[in-house]
């Protein structure tokens, strides 16, 4: 485990969710697994963090005052940010299609297990 932790430590993940407990608990899991994590529930702050070019963005679909799909669209339309993989998080998988249309690379449904989350994340933060 220690070995793989060292290997994946370089990956930087941003969690964008307006629910503090979600940000906190998810980052707890990811930090425990050796990822670098930043969290925000504010779309303005998000654009600031994006400038630091994360390796992955975990984006909630319903953030207060902002639709995650709009953020995804904007990021995918921008040359500087379009390569950042986006995993959308939602409570209902009925949004899956529109999330894909908005440019999301993947999708995860609440509530997810730790295992599910880690598998999804590892897909975009390959250790090899």
């Amino acid at each position: 485990m220690e070995k793989s932790e060292n290997k994946i430590r370089k990956y930087k993940i941003i969690i964008a969710d307006d629910d503090q407990a979600i940000c906190d608990s998810m980052s707890m899991i990811l930090v425990e697994m050796g990822y670098m994590v930043e969290t925000t529930g504010d779309s303005n702050t998000l654009s600031e963090i994006i400038k630091n070019k994360p390796d992955l963005l975990l984006l909630d679909i319903w953030m207060s005052g902002m639709d995650g799909r709009d953020i995804a669209k904007q990021l995918k339309a921008n040359k500087d940010t379009q390569s950042i993989p986006i995993i959308m998080i939602s409570a209902t998988r009925d949004i899956m299609k529109s999330a894909k249309v908005a440019g999301a690379d993947d999708f995860i449904t609440k509530p997810f297990t730790m295992e599910e989350l880690l598998i999804k994340v590892a897909k975009y933060c390959k250790t090899s």
Partner: peptide, 18 residues
């Protein structure tokens, strides 16, 4: 309602698992 009910369960579950 889906969102509201599932969000706290998600974080509790994440805390419990970790």
């Amino acid at each position: 309602a889906t969102h509201e009910l599932k969000t706290p369960v998600t974080s509790i579950k994440a805390y419990a698992e970790v």
